[in-house]
Design a protein around this nucleic acid. Structure first.
Lengths: 353, 353
DNA sequence: CTGTTAGCGCCTTCAG
DNA sequence: CTGAAGGCGCTAACAG
């Protein structure tokens, strides 16, 4: 330890070094430093090197706030998801981030926790952070989309994925929920099931409605009369699955299959069925949706629908960047009808059916 | 639709309304507006109301960049985690965010994806965003902690959780990895197992080392000679589990139990064991660590160690806010030795042991 | 209680 | 290729 050094360590919030510091140290103007740091071409090669060197020397770190303020562009996009507990959204986010990184963008993740109020807050927060765009999947509580309309009014590009709404004219990335549900239920019927129950999601989610419709249409196509007692829609809070499944099993004429809105639901249902000492799939078949990590680990392994999660993320991010480019070139871009991209799912038939 | 309205919809990036706009509209100065919005007390009640009203009217949204720049404080803390795929980190994050929300703080989540390089980038990004503090769990690749030292040099409070290092003098929140591992292995021995294998984590992680030590000490305490062939440490990439478990099972004298570094590992191991038509726990017992969502869903249910995830998050956030308070009151706060908080785990003995 | 005046750190014309 | 000047939106003394 040399003495005589100014002890920076001991000082609180050591004033960050700014471009002015490095300008002074080099005897140039801060404009030059700024240009060098930004990689502008019109800077003498030597000056640039000196600047880069000195900036490393001084442990310089760009102040993104100042940069964003001055540039009116932050290169940050906001991501709003309802939750991070299952595998679905984290996977989608990975897809998003990978694409963004390649394009020199960063993201801020907000989880609304399936709370409408938090979602509204998140939107406000992201706008106040001056994000350049927003990717969103809404909560199952969300029926009013004014907060997203505000995003559009402010001229901030918005793309929705997975949980989308037809109340908004924005680009969307979804999967073929209807077809997938139809295919799964059709398969169940083909393999001899007749009394197929459906543990559906909240009606507020378009995904729930589409999967329900796929279920119903598959029944109809096969001449199976739908039985309202076999259709229950719930709010996705796993604890309740037990109640509903028990209810199904205790019907005078219980189902011989249950098609669940998603994998966590199906896995919870599986526990209940096992506790009742029923065999899967002999006594009752079980199917989920999404191909969560666990669905392959349980016994019996769960039949489900695989979604291309990272592709969803990638495409959503791609659409967003396109929107962002369009919005800065064309002042009327918001008027145009937006594309909805429908990605293919894959039926995974495993032991439970 | 009334006519004569200025079509804001069509304009791109409609210049956000600023406090100046609302100041003009009200014929007051922007300082007054600022104060009213910030909830300062020294503002006439009527003026305040007028400001609040007008700001709602004009769809005003605070510009966080400008605010942070002017205030030199953003009320944002950064969170760095290695991944979001398992349940552990998302749960911890929920705990963090809940606590932060109560204290009027926000967070930015960065996932390093277990990549050292991304971690370094994340730190730089967060610093450039001028976060007021950082909560971090490092990757298993991280052996050099200079990027975190830089955080300290810049006077930004830092708290580590779960994946911590003794190379840094910062507050830490961890669980009793050693004790938990010891207890689990001790239990296995008590219940008659002698050849207990350990599928360990990367040596770079202190958690791996502590769990390994707990394992070894439990063996020693019970007079069981450790067998190096039964100890394998790996990099947590699930695909490799198959190889290692197969290897174990094909030893001339195979293990009668496997203690895995975490639940994903144990669950993957379970598949391999089942494929070999071995019975769990009769032929071989299996134990994990962390109590992932799935560990209760598989058959047999997995014995594991429950970690108080949201508490970890809450406590880490609490320590961070304390640091932040201290750092702004005491210029020497960095010099003091920092507290390491060790939280209790709980042994969950289920069917697999 | 309110207006005025300086910035925060950086970028971007506009001259040279 | 470089410097000077003005401004991004907001806050924080400092005077009244």
């Amino acid at each position: 330890m040399r003495t005589g050094e100014i002890s920076k360590t001991a000082s609180m919030k050591a004033k960050q070094t700014s471009i002015i510091d490095i300008a002074k140290a080099l005897g140039v103007s801060k404009s030059t430093v700024s240009r060098a740091l930004l990689g502008h071409t019109n800077v003498n090669d030597e000056t640039r090197k000196a600047v880069l060197h000195m900036s490393a020397q001084l442990d310089y770190q760009r102040n993104t706030l100042a940069l964003g303020l001055a540039r009116k562009k932050t290169s940050v996009v906001g991501i709003i998801v309802p939750e991070l507990q299952s595998n679905f959204f984290p996977s989608v986010i990975s897809g998003i981030e990978e694409f963004l990184r390649k394009n020199k963008y960063r993201s801020i993740i907000c989880q609304s926790g399936e709370s409408y109020e938090h979602e509204v807050e998140s939107v406000a927060q992201l706008l106040s952070y001056q994000v350049d765009g927003i990717l969103a999947s809404h909560t199952y509580e969300t029926r009013n989309f004014d907060h997203f309309r505000q995003v559009q009014r402010k001229g901030v590009p918005l793309v929705m994925f997975n949980r989308v709404t037809d109340q908004l004219n924005v680009p969307k990335v979804v999967v073929d929920d209807y077809e997938a549900a139809f295919a799964m239920v059709d398969f169940l019927i083909q393999s001899g099931r007749r009394r197929i129950a459906h543990l559906a999601g909240p009606d507020a989610l378009i995904n729930s409605r589409l999967r329900l419709k796929g279920y119903l249409d598959a029944l109809e196509k096969n001449g199976v009369e739908p039985d309202q007692r076999l259709i229950l829609s719930y709010d996705l809070s796993i604890e309740k699955v037990k109640i509903y499944v028990k209810h199904f099993l205790e019907l005078e004429s219980p189902p011989d299959a249950i098609f669940c809105i998603n994998d966590p639901t199906a896995l919870a249902a599986m526990l209940v069925i096992k506790q009742k000492n029923l065999r899967i799939p002999e006594d009752i078949a079980l199917a989920g949706f999404s191909n969560d990590f666990s669905s392959d680990l349980v016994t019996p392994t769960l039949s489900t629908v695989a979604q291309p999660t990272s592709e969803i993320g990638r495409e959503a991010a791609r659409l967003l960047l396109e929107e962002m480019a369009a919005s800065s070139n064309d002042s009327q871009w918001q008027e145009y009808p937006k594309e909805t991209m429908v990605l293919k799912t894959r039926l995974l038939l495993r032991e439970s059916t």
